[in-house]
Amino acid sequence: MSTSTMARIKAQASNINGSPSILDYELDHTKFEVPIWLRIPPELRDALLALEQKAMATIATMKKLMLRRGDRFNCLCSPDHAFFDRHAQSMEHLLGWKEEWNLINPTLAVSAKIPQQALRIFVDEGAYARLSHQYTQLVGAYLEGQFFNWCQARNGVIHLAHRLMCNPRSLKYNNPNDYKEFNKWFSKVFLSAMFQWESCLNALVLPTYEETIMDLRHMIYERVDNSMGFEGNFYIPL
């Protein structure tokens, strides 16, 4: 996927949905570092390192899913349709339009709206339904597989800490006070940091065909010249 296409999808995710996107998120690796004053067993440090790798992989997959979701406007037209390229090019124009390009002096940089004749949009509810089915299966597999495994591993760290640090048989690591401090850091600092990206899971839900058409109409109204007369440029393949 090209850099421009990814930038377009990121802008679409934030501008249309009005909510944070996983595509804007970068993992803060320092959140996996236990405070230096806190004593923990080396096995627990190793578990946190392994958890960091698992987080990176889980986030990467979520981003791939979000990119696939972000291509929903292209998927209004079947890629097998003869005019798919014209549809995709039209969507590129529509999604790439910005009201103002010069943020320093926006009054001098209001963008001209897109001429109607530059756009040819083809909508096919059947094509979108096929996308929805395939995408829903991918998200389901992610939730039941990689994301579930992440949650299990995340929760497993605190169980490991309790087993190692609250074991009266262990003369080396048994220290309930240290465990109490670790548990406080884990629940208040670490889990809060992870929630920043875990909560982006909700944004993976694919809008319905009707919702996507409404978003498309909103963009047309905002970005196309004389948009009220644009309905004639909507084509529904037979």
Rank of each mutant, 00 (worst) to 15 (best):
I9F: 09
K10P: 00
A11K: 07
A13V: 03
S14D: 09
N15K: 11
N15S: 13
I16A: 13
G18V: 03
Y25C: 06
Y25W: 07
L27S: 10
L27C: 10
D28M: 06
K31N: 12
K31T: 05
V34D: 09
W37D: 15
L38Q: 09
P41I: 00
P42L: 03
P42R: 07
R45M: 06
A47Q: 08
L49W: 01
A50N: 14
A50L: 12
E52P: 05
E52L: 12
K54Y: 04
A55H: 06
A55K: 07
A55P: 10
A60L: 10
T61A: 12
K63S: 07
L67H: 03
R69G: 02
R72E: 05
F73W: 04
L76K: 10
C77E: 02
C77H: 06
H81W: 02
R86G: 09
H87C: 06
A88G: 04
S90F: 02
L94D: 03
L95S: 00
K98G: 00
W101D: 06
I104H: 09
T107L: 15
A112E: 15
I114K: 05
P115M: 06
Q117N: 11
Q117E: 14
V123M: 12
D124I: 08
G126A: 14
Q134K: 10
Q134M: 10
Y135N: 05
Q137D: 11
Q137A: 08
A141K: 11
A141Y: 01
Y142E: 09
E144S: 10
Q146Y: 00
W150I: 01
C151R: 14
R154D: 14
R154L: 15
G156K: 01
V157R: 00
H162G: 00
L164D: 05
L164G: 04
L164S: 06
M165V: 04
R169K: 12
K172V: 09
Y173N: 13
N174S: 13
N174T: 05
N174H: 12
N177C: 08
N177K: 05
D178E: 15
K180G: 04
F182H: 07
N183E: 15
K184C: 03
L191W: 02
Q196G: 01
E198L: 05
E198Y: 00
A203M: 09
L204M: 04
L206Y: 02
P207S: 04
T208S: 15
Y209P: 09
T212M: 12
M214R: 15
R217M: 11
R217W: 04
H218D: 12
I220M: 08
M228T: 08
G229Y: 10
E231K: 05
G232W: 07
N233M: 13
F234A: 08
P237R: 08
P237Q: 08
